[in-house]
Simulated scan of single mutants.
Amino acid sequence: MRVVRGGVAFLGVIETALGLWTLLLPRSFYDIVPGVNVLPFNEHLMKDYGAMNLALALVTWVAFVRFDVLMARLALGAYLVFAVPHLIYHQTHLDGLTPGEALFNVIALWVAVLLPAMLLVLTRQVAKSSVSPPSV
């Protein structure tokens, strides 16, 4: 249970940092993160992305604070709903990136999918261990 809760907290930190950075400093995010600047800068889109990350951070932090299996699954599932299509898009749009930028994108985005997926699998073990056997 500690591993799942710790993983949820880690994802909350990532989402909070990304959300605040992109919402408050959209041009900085655009200029620094590999693969973002292959499209023209759009402040509105960057700020919307930041706000979306903060909304996901809220769900994640609620799951951390009020930890139970259902809340953890909700947060991890919501994270994956974003992370999987995000990975697919960037995996198929590596043109324009240096080899180092492409490698960074591939590794970071795969971790962003594999970590919550593994934590989601662990919630099954948490759920099984927290179910008490029927009384006779």
Score class of each variant (00 low, 15 high):
2 R>Y: 12
3 V>L: 14
4 V>G: 02
4 V>S: 02
4 V>K: 03
5 R>V: 09
5 R>Q: 13
7 G>E: 05
9 A>C: 11
9 A>K: 01
12 G>S: 13
13 V>R: 08
13 V>H: 08
13 V>M: 11
14 I>F: 10
14 I>R: 14
15 E>H: 13
16 T>H: 08
16 T>V: 10
17 A>S: 13
18 L>Y: 14
19 G>D: 00
19 G>R: 01
20 L>S: 00
21 W>D: 06
24 L>D: 08
24 L>A: 12
24 L>P: 02
25 L>F: 15
25 L>I: 08
26 P>V: 05
27 R>W: 12
27 R>D: 10
28 S>W: 11
29 F>M: 14
30 Y>I: 05
30 Y>P: 05
31 D>R: 14
31 D>Q: 15
31 D>Y: 09
32 I>D: 08
32 I>G: 03
32 I>M: 11
34 P>K: 09
34 P>T: 05
34 P>L: 05
36 V>E: 03
36 V>H: 01
39 L>K: 14
39 L>M: 13
40 P>I: 12
41 F>G: 02
42 N>T: 06
44 H>M: 15
45 L>E: 06
45 L>M: 13
46 M>I: 02
46 M>L: 06
46 M>W: 00
49 Y>G: 09
50 G>D: 01
50 G>W: 00
50 G>M: 01
50 G>Q: 03
51 A>F: 08
52 M>K: 03
54 L>G: 08
54 L>Q: 01
55 A>Y: 06
56 L>E: 01
56 L>T: 01
58 L>M: 10
58 L>A: 13
61 W>Q: 00
61 W>E: 00
63 A>V: 04
64 F>E: 00
66 R>V: 04
66 R>S: 07
66 R>W: 14
67 F>Q: 02
69 V>S: 00
71 M>I: 01
72 A>M: 09
72 A>D: 01
74 L>V: 11
75 A>P: 02
77 G>N: 05
77 G>S: 10
78 A>T: 07
79 Y>A: 14
80 L>V: 12
81 V>F: 13
81 V>Q: 07
82 F>M: 09
82 F>I: 06
82 F>W: 12
83 A>Y: 06
83 A>F: 03
84 V>F: 06
85 P>G: 09
85 P>D: 07
87 L>S: 02
88 I>V: 11
89 Y>I: 07
91 Q>M: 15
92 T>P: 04
92 T>Q: 11
95 D>N: 11
97 L>D: 00
98 T>W: 09
102 A>E: 00
103 L>F: 11
103 L>S: 14
104 F>Q: 08
104 F>Y: 12
104 F>V: 02
106 V>E: 05
106 V>D: 12
106 V>L: 06
107 I>P: 05
108 A>M: 10
112 A>K: 03
114 L>Y: 11
114 L>F: 15
115 L>W: 05
115 L>K: 07
117 A>R: 05
118 M>Q: 12
119 L>R: 04
120 L>T: 04
121 V>W: 15
121 V>Y: 14
122 L>G: 06
122 L>Y: 06
122 L>V: 07
123 T>Y: 04
124 R>S: 11
125 Q>L: 13
127 A>N: 10
128 K>M: 11
132 S>Q: 13
133 P>F: 12
135 S>Y: 14
135 S>T: 15
136 V>K: 15
